[in-house]
Design a binder for these strands. Structure first.
Lengths: 359, 359
DNA sequence: ACATTTTCCGTGTACGCACACAAAAGTAAC
DNA sequence: GTTACTTTTGTGTGCGTACACGGAAAATGT
């Protein structure tokens, strides 16, 4: 492998100049820049990462703002883990990742956490834009300071984010339609739960429902869907009652779609006799959801591999900081179909990482 | 992270002495050795591998032996691409990946390619042990020279390979059973094609078939399966004829399982009217298979992400060489369920890489 | 007491790159 | 042609480790 020094000799310049060309720093005349660049590509110069990371001193502060998780809602645990994992990996490239979390039900904590984040004057930010109005305030600050930012998991448009990393909710819903149809065949009567969708800026649920409908419409499959929304998913008795009532009045229902990560609650609130005759499809492999999958309470989960989302967002931002590589505008996560039978092979990166940090 | 220099200062010795203690070289008095050792453990000193490999400047030759691909059978293209991608990544860590391919129908070319490989005296080897007897010869040479090796994609036991990377065929088959059952519901009459399984040492097909049967047996689902094997999959007319005959005599068949990567051939050889009434499930997302999926000829493909297998095998071996990290004995790839609806989101790593090399 | 060997330890350099600082070359105005 | 400044280029040091080399001290021999 050719080194900077060798390149410099060939081009009749110093290593400093070569370094400048490589990193696109200014202070090099157009002429020499072109000459060096040519030799660089000709000789197929590749930077020696070993030496690079040795030479780099801690320089970048990459801050992450995302919701915290708790026992009731473990969804955010996964991306958080992904971020930690990536943090370790990029550390040797001179990037320190600082994570700030907020209560996903509390707009104030969102703003407070951001304040702490911005006080650390980060070079780059990754955030989950959960509340729309508050996000506008936040983004204006980032824009003003010219701090690049990536949206994680929640897709909103009209901002200067360099990328969005998350699921294509519509396509996810579309896929859930296909799977539901496969499970239920001729009896196409469904229940769709519409949970808390107005609580925050979460158009994921909406998108999934739209996608679900689209599958049947586009393929010209007649179907019926009733929807049910809950005031408080933590009030289990009430949820049970609501479900019982609905399933008693609509006895022909063959499948239940839960377009959020909370399907475990729903499945646990349905009478087990009734449950056996139903196909349940939900999203995200939270620990509770996985438990239901194992017990045959749920047929399919569609996973967005949120661990990888966290991981990827950090890595991509790191690459942007170091190499100035602009990522794609939208990076959609895979729509992973999870059943009891392939569960153990999914999310290996995540489990390996958890093993690592345990030992 | 504490450095050798710092340790040296605390122990009142030079970095050279600390270095000697760390590497167990002699030339250090018992007294100072103990003193330094104590500080080393006290301060939880961890060697900086980056600096280490920079200083060592050792070049590793990591050689890969795997089947070549051709227009008829593209299966091996994917892992080969994965290997190339990883090769780029580990190059900067002083590891040069050399790839040797062989004709998957020709035992001699297997041995010949290995001869070339071993002549380069590699520090580590990754190989696809396609032919059992020939593999024994090969492995004995590797064992004698104490060259570490990993098995890629094909699982055989009784060797000192430091790892196996590939699919759990049995579980893959089991999953295919589940999916088939879902697709076909009450009508559980299936055709299983058993292709070329005796041609090479490929117990993957066997494992998948076993797994498929197991699903129905373990869940006590009554079913019927007829099997059909082909002499030559390239003789399309004959294949068509065989299929037609079988499907005409077994009119109640509702699903076809192809436990290899060749489902596209089967699906193309079935009369389209008949095809509409059948659920086809196969393995691996080769280009031809994907095309059939898009045309609704196939319902499910189970992918083993062979691109990632190639990628991972190289990365793992690299880590073993550099850091001396022993990997897990068996690394099973995910069993990814691919349908028309989630196809576009799968194999992103692969497509991104292909984009890269094209540009 | 002196020479010789052995044991022990410190110094210096290389690895390839990043970056701060110094130096040179170029430009413009007078 | 001198000065003042800007642009462009070169130099040197540090990152943490490995290891060769050589010097000092201690042990041994005569």
């Amino acid at each position: 492998m050719i080194t900077i020094k060798e390149i410099a000799e060939i081009a009749n310049v110093s290593v400093g100049t070569v370094d400048r060309v490589i990193h696109g720093r200014d202070g090099v005349s157009k002429k020499t820049k072109e000459r060096v660049q040519k030799i660089l590509t000709e000789k197929n110069f590749k930077i020696n990462n070993i030496a690079r990371s040795l030479a780099m001193k801690k320089k970048y502060n990459l801050s992450v703002l995302m919701p915290d998780f708790d026992a009731d809602n473990l969804f955010w645990k996964s991306p958080l883990l992904g971020v930690s994992k990536a943090a370790e990996e990029v550390l040797s490239f001179g990037i320190e990742v600082k994570t700030f979390t907020f209560n996903q039900l509390d707009k104030k904590s969102y703003l407070n956490s951001f304040q702490k984040l911005i006080d650390g004057s980060p070079e780059a930010v990754i955030l989950t834009p959960l509340f729309l109005n508050e996000t506008k305030t936040i983004i204006s600050q980032l824009d003003k300071k010219k701090i690049p930012y990536i949206f994680l998991n929640i897709e909103i448009n009209g901002f200067n984010n360099i990328s969005f990393i998350g699921q294509d909710s519509y396509k996810g819903g579309y896929l859930s339609g296909k799977l539901m149809h496969l499970c239920t065949q001729k009896n196409t009567n469904y229940l769709i739960t519409d949970i808390e969708s107005k609580l925050y800026n979460n158009n994921a649920i909406e998108g999934r429902i739209k996608g679900f409908y689209s599958y049947f419409n586009k393929n010209k499959i007649p179907f019926n869907a009733v929807s049910l929304s809950f005031e408080d998913l933590n009030n289990l008795d009430h949820v049970k009652q609501q479900l019982k009532q609905l399933l008693d009045t609509h006895k022909n229902i063959s499948g239940v779609l839960v377009p959020s990560s909370r399907i475990s609650i729903i499945s646990n609130c349905i009478d087990s006799k009734k449950l056996k005759k139903l196909s349940l499809i939900g999203f995200d492999t939270t620990e509770q959801n996985v438990a239901c999958l194992k017990n045959d309470k749920i047929t399919f989960l569609i996973s967005q591999k949120s661990f990888n989302q966290g991981l990827k967002s950090v890595k991509i931002m790191a690459e942007y900081l170091i190499q100035n590589n602009l990522p794609h505008q939208k990076i959609y996560s895979p729509l992973e179909i999870i059943t009891k039978e392939n569960l153990e092979f999914s999310q290996q990166e995540k489990w390996h990482y958890i093993d690592e940090i345990k030992s």
